[in-house]
Amino acid sequence: MSLSTGQELAPKRYLINRALLKQYADASGDQNPIHQDEAFAKSVGLPDVIAHGMLTMALAGKFLSDLNGSAAVVEFSAKFIKPVVVPAGRDVELIVSGKVGEINEGIAKIEITAMCEDVKVLGVAKGAVRI
């Protein structure tokens, strides 16, 4: 695997919809109704159903895994700065891109950007991947 500091990693596109939220809820065990029930989400002041922050992070994690396999990912962190709102009946696009930071002792730091409809949804998202 060859990566060099400063290298830009091509963006990847992931689609999020209500069916995926249900699938993630079942896979992760996080059945919080704000991720599935529109009436409930609105009752607690949200604009609509929102994606699990951890689903967005799992998709950004796939971006890291694609560099050198899941087994090579040694660190991953992010802040959930904006919700990913998922209206009924359509796909919401998440675009994940990255830039290679410092490489030290076979481990590359990766700065990740995750955008949803031109809004940055993860803050200071960083991974470290064995190369």
Binding site: G53, E75, F76
Partner: peptide
Amino acid sequence: VHGEQKFEIK
């Protein structure tokens, strides 16, 4: 609500 998450994977 979840504010921030970090993993260190051994």
